[in-house]
Design a protein around this nucleic acid. Structure first.
Length: 877
RNA sequence: GCGGGCGUGGUGGAACUGGUAGACACACAAGACUUAAAAUCUUGAGGGGGUAUCCCCGUGCGGGUUCGAGUCCCGCCGCCCGCACCA
């Protein structure tokens, strides 16, 4: 491998560019001049660019480098475009790993966390990001969680918080509760442990109150990836349906929810969830049912089980009257596939038009009545056996619904049943249902934001008065026993009721860490305010113009943040509904994997790649033994295929690493880290340095007076085009294309210099000066340190980062002539150069005069000639 | 199962609303410089055939629309992502 730093010592005009000297130097200059601090009295248009803040694990990884580099390019570009840019950084600092570290190493979570933050801050600073460090905070700062507690109390007051007993997802390893979103395939998202169901009283944010608004808001988020909007739409899961009351033959009613009331005539059974109150009631006197209910609950959580589980049911003694078929009754089952959490916890089964119902019906010998006839089928012969029909069609065998299309049938049955009453209530009610449930935020952990309430036996739940905030995390805690240390901390737990003074118990649960990250973007607009926000400032900056982060947060973090913003709006902390106007989700950084003969993973740093006869062979650096090259995977510690940013910066410098992660791969896709790739980036850094130094030498030559010059104006044309393209590519976050444009531009300047004679004409020197100045400006957002050094070489005394983005002169962007491809029958046979916007007749004549065209046509006249102005000519022979 | 996305040289990838496919880069090869290597510079290259500057094939596969298809439509194949007994 190259050891660049050894070859790059020397003064400012050294042969080689030396990032080890240059990068810390410019970082010092920017910091001293506070180049990137945002000021409130600035009248320029505000622009807020934010990258998802990191968890302080202790070291940055390449994913951070890529994410923050993209954000930094946007920030520097917008600053150059004259915007007042806010680009802050902070730390998502509460959470389990600090407690795990505390248990493993007997170090306090606070110490561990702040030490990690200090280390990572240093690493981030070595990347040269244009961050406003004056706004930095960590979510575990007392100052921050104090305001979060204020928000909690405001939410409580405004009816946005609720406390309820519910079946919760219990992570037996982390010993805490997980939200539904945090359970992935039946396992805890962090621990990977199989999640159990427990009954606990929990605090909830009423996100479901906003379900409709969160759904509608998605339509306004035009600068979000369609994929993310779709994922949120599905997550919210709106469905329109009907609640229908069925009369139980022995008295009473049972209410079901359905989105297919049009299939009511095809109903053949009713199924209740095992958790349905009626099932509980019946199981009191029915041991077999009781056992069945218990069995359902046991397998309720394991997702793999759900997938393969057979439809099982228990026939209760109950029957209900069919609402629209006179004299018919339906049996009532308790079934393992009905969810209590959705709808009413009870369904009617129409086997012909629902696969689950059909499976169930086939297992229990229940009848299958088709009631929707697909087009092209006949009512006499259409039958459903093993596959339910869920497509469009016309109602049949359905009494007064016969002949109606599905939507019309739904409408008709709804209005008929709405008008009837059962036990004084309408037999049916239209209902919009959502999959989205309330957000359970209680966590039985120490290292989180304490929930500021006190439980009093007399007064009930009492909010901690705002004057008593913050509820501080006690310092003296032990982690040697599992569970929550706060729960066994006497002075934290045992307090007097703020209302009546009686001995009371403090809430010992802390908040889900997703709460912390649901409003940090707002706090950055006034990081030192006494209140959670200063509304005028929040409204000035928000929504975030460009938010950048990983797709893994498409649902959780982004949905919670959207809810929080609405909740904060309701409480008067800010006045926008949507937190992030533009969202960009960047791809991962991947690397080849390596394994030795024993199957152990080997880190890239311990591997040497050799190429012999076109075949790549990996060898262990120390032992020389051959190592198997495996698939390309996301960089992860477990597979050891990580490349340490610190080492890259030490070897090649931050600019090279920045340039590499922006090159080649489109930013939303994964990028593969390769040794060859980083060396290519390194070479380009050196190339720019040499080019700028060469250019300066030419510019200093004595100039010969001279007028118009085609070569010089061609250089200017290229320069202006590059300016326009790079600008629009960066604005559209197409960094890989901006990089390609810059390559081409640099190639053109190189050629221009090479062709320069020893005593160049003044116009050429001027063209070179413009071109190379622009080149430096165009690379500045991506390779800011190199750009500053080059800027100085070119003799400018200002900083590039303070220099406005260059304008592209439109007159250089249009050509006087255009080259048109000439096709015959759609195949390219040659090209012609014509004046721009030349009359079609002239273009046609010139195209037909081409030798290749004439040869193919022979003596026959063309049947047709299509001229697309300034684009193409197609001759139809 | 449902929903979404993607398939382009040896590789990463360009190609704006249908209009010169393969920009740019990596890797490769040849040459220059060098005692040599590295670095650097120049040149070459989708595949095949003709050894000039000519022709054929070519964007996962098969059809279609069009003067013209990587791009639009239909049917397959493969890969990736999200959701998943949500009634």
């Amino acid at each position: 491998m190259v050891e660049p730093q050894e070859k790059s010592a020397g003064d400012a005009r050294a042969e080689r560019y030396n990032p080890r000297e240059s990068e810390p130097f410019w970082q010092g200059v920017w910091s001293e001049r506070e180049s990137f601090a945002s000021r409130e009295n600035d009248t320029r248009e505000p622009y807020y660019v934010l990258e998802m803040f990191p968890y302080p694990s202790g070291r940055i990884h390449m994913g951070h480098v890529r994410n923050y580099t993209m954000g930094d390019v946007v920030a520097r570009f917008q600053r150059a475009k004259g915007k007042n840019v806010l680009h802050p950084m902070g730390w998502d600092a509460f959470g389990m790993p600090a407690e795990n570290a505390a248990m493993a190493n007997r170090v306090h979570p606070r110490e561990w966390t702040y030490a990690n933050i200090a280390a990572m801050r240093k690493q981030l600073q070595s990347m040269g990001f244009s961050l406003d460090w004056g706004r930095e905070f960590a979510t575990c700062d007392e100052d921050y969680y104090h305001r979060q507690q204020m928000l909690f109390l405001d939410f409580l007051e405004n009816g946005l918080v609720t406390r309820k007993t519910s079946k919760v997802n219990w992570d037996p390893v982390d010993q805490t509760v997980l939200a539904n979103e945090q359970v992935i395939d039946g396992r805890g998202w962090r621990s990977g442990a199989l999640v159990e169901q427990r009954e606990l009283t929990q605090w909830f944010f009423k996100i479901s109150d906003f379900a409709e608004d969160l759904l509608a808001g998605l339509d306004t988020l035009e600068n979000w990836p369609e994929k993310v909007r779709l994922m949120q739409r599905n997550w919210i899961g709106r469905s329109e349906g009907l609640r229908i009351l069925f009369e139980i033959v022995d008295g009473g009613t049972v209410e079901v929810f359905t989105t297919r009331p049009d299939t009511l005539f095809g109903a053949s059974f009713i199924a209740l969830s095992a958790d349905h109150p009626l099932a509980a009631e019946l199981s009191k006197s029915d041991h077999a049912l009781k056992a069945f209910v218990a069995e359902c609950r046991r397998m309720g959580t394991a997702a793999e089980a759900i997938e393969t589980a057979e439809k099982k049911g228990y026939r209760t003694p109950l029957t209900v009257r069919h609402p629209v078929i006179e004299g018919a009754t339906l049996p009532v089952y308790v079934a393992n596939f009905v969810l209590m959490e959705y709808g009413t916890g009870a369904i009617f089964g129409c086997p012909a038009h629902d696969q689950r119902d059909l499976d169930f019906a086939n297992a229990y010998g229940l009848p299958v009545f088709p009631v929707v006839l697909p087009e092209g089928e006949s009512a006499e012969t259409f039958a459903v056996t093993t596959e339910a029909y869920t497509g469009p069609g016309i109602a049949f065998n359905s009494g007064f619904l016969d002949g109606l299309a599905i939507d019309d049938a739904k409408e008709k049955i709804a209005s008929v049943l709405e008008a009837r009453t059962i036990e004084g209530a309408p037999q049916a009610t239209r209902q919009v249902n959502y999959r989205l449930r309330d957000w359970g935020i209680s966590r039985q952990r120490y290292w989180g934001c304490p929930i500021p309430v006190i439980h009093c036996e007399v007064c009930g739940v009492v909010p901690v008065p705002k004057k008593d905030l913050p509820v501080r995390l006690p310092e003296d805690v032990e982690f040697d026993t599992p569970g929550n240390p706060l729960d066994r901390h006497p002075t934290f737990r045992n307090v007097d009721c703020p209302q009546c003074g009686a001995p009371a118990r403090r809430e010992t649960d802390t908040m889900d860490t997703f709460v912390d990250s649901s409003w940090y973007f707002a706090r950055f607009t006034a990081p030192h305010a006494d209140a959670p926000t200063i509304p005028s400032l929040a409204d000035k900056w928000l929504p975030v113009d460009q938010y950048i982060g990983g797709i893994e947060h498409a649902i959780l973090h982004l949905l919670y943040s959207r809810f929080f913003t609405r909740a904060m709006q309701k409480c008067g902390h800010l006045d926008v509904a949507e937190p992030f106007k533009g969202l960009f989700t960047q791809g991962m950084v991947t690397h080849e994997t390596y394994r030795d003969a024993k199957g152990e993973w080997v880190a890239p740093a311990d591997v040497r790649i050799e190429t012999s006869e076109g075949v790549r062979i990996a060898r262990h650096l120390a032992t020389g033994t051959e190592i198997a090259i495996g698939s390309v995977e996301k960089m992860s510690k477990s597979k050891k295929n990580v490349v340490d940013p610190d080492e890259m910066i030490a070897t090649y410098g931050a600019d090279t690493a920045r340039w590499f992660v922006l090159s080649d791969s489109p930013p939303e896709r994964d990028v593969q880290w390769t040794e060859a790739g980083i060396e290519g980036a390194w070479r380009f850094v050196q190339r720019v340095w040499k080019l700028v130094n060469d250019a300066r030498a030419v510019i200093e030559l004595p100039a010969q007076p001279g007028g118009g010059d085609a070569v010089a104006s061609e250089m200017l044309k290229v320069a202006h085009r590059a300016t326009a393209h790079v600008g629009s590519d960066i604005a559209g976050l197409r960094f890989n294309r901006a990089v390609a444009q810059i390559h081409e531009f640099a190639n053109a300047i190189s050629r221009f210099i090479n062709e320069m004679d020893p005593s160049p004409a003044e116009v050429r020197i001027e063209a070179l000066r413009v071109a190379v100045t622009r080149l430096v400006q165009l690379i500045a957002p991506m390779m800011p340190h190199l750009a500053e050094s080059c800027w100085r070489i070119l003799g400018y005394e200002s900083l590039v980062c303070d220099t406005p983005w260059p304008e592209a002169d439109p007159s250089y962007l249009v050509d006087d002539t255009v080259v048109l491809a000439v096709q015959v029958n759609g195949k390219r046979r040659g090209e012609i150069e014509v004046a721009k916007d030349a009359p079609n007749a002239d273009v046609e004549a010139k195209a037909l005069s081409l030798e290749a065209v004439a040869r193919i046509l022979g003596t026959n006249p063309p049947r047709k000639v299509i001229v697309v102005p300034n684009r193409i000519v197609n001759v139809v022979a």
